[in-house]
Amino acid sequence: MRALRGLLCAAGLGLMGVGAWLLFVEGRIRNPEDVVVWLGGAVALHDAVIAPVVLGVGWLLVRATRRRGPETLPTGAQGAVTTGESVGRRRLDVFRGPLRGALVVGGSLTVVALPPLLRPGRTSNPTALPLDYPRNWLVLLGATAVCAAAPAALRLFRARRRDD
């Protein structure tokens, strides 16, 4: 696993280098200062909006799925604590990590997709933004949800088999 992480890190750094090369050396943009301003805005948006939302939802998720001892569980119909409630809460723990990851990826996709999503309508040049960006953004968010739900569902399935 360590080798895979190192390989992915090296690939990411290499792609960032290619992007910086194309941006600053090849001169494909007219004003590099605008890019710096945009990147600064992205960092500010992350720190002011995305990170607090992810932290808040993660905190709520932990509070909702926290394992409770039998003495703090709600009581059943006859006043006895039912074990199903404890097991159900424990099983919700498997969704914490994938949901947090999905929130981070979804927030990042949204930040990247904001410029074409917020455009005021069709442009005078139909080749400037030719794709259906809202649909593609929703498809990517759906794929993110599926990729986050799959490992959680697998863990839940394994936990059920282990409990049986």
Rank of each mutant, 00 (worst) to 15 (best):
A3N: 13
R5P: 12
R5W: 15
G6E: 13
G6A: 13
L8A: 09
C9K: 12
C9Y: 14
A10L: 10
G14W: 12
G14Q: 14
M16S: 15
G17P: 14
V18S: 11
V18W: 15
A20E: 09
A20V: 13
A20L: 15
L22R: 04
V25M: 11
V25S: 13
E26I: 05
E26F: 10
G27H: 10
P32H: 09
P32S: 11
D34A: 06
V37D: 10
W38K: 15
L39T: 12
V43L: 10
V43M: 07
L45K: 08
D47P: 01
D47A: 07
A48L: 12
A51D: 11
A51G: 01
P52Y: 06
V54L: 13
L55R: 11
G56Y: 04
G56I: 03
L60H: 00
L61F: 08
V62G: 07
V62K: 01
R63K: 08
R63D: 03
A64T: 01
T65K: 07
R68D: 09
G69F: 13
E71T: 05
L73Y: 02
P74M: 08
A77W: 02
G79V: 03
G79P: 02
G79D: 09
V81L: 14
T82K: 07
T82L: 08
T83S: 01
G84T: 03
G84W: 02
E85F: 06
E85D: 07
R89N: 01
R90H: 07
P98G: 04
L99T: 09
G101K: 00
G101F: 09
A102T: 01
V105D: 02
G106E: 00
G107D: 03
S108F: 05
T110V: 00
V111A: 11
V111R: 03
L117M: 01
L118P: 01
L118R: 00
P120T: 14
P120L: 14
S124Y: 05
N125D: 14
N125G: 00
P126V: 10
T127I: 11
A128W: 08
L131E: 06
L131S: 10
Y133L: 13
Y133I: 15
W137K: 05
L138Y: 12
L138M: 15
L141S: 07
A145S: 10
V146L: 13
A149N: 01
A153N: 04
R160G: 12
D163F: 08
D163H: 09
D164S: 12
D164C: 13
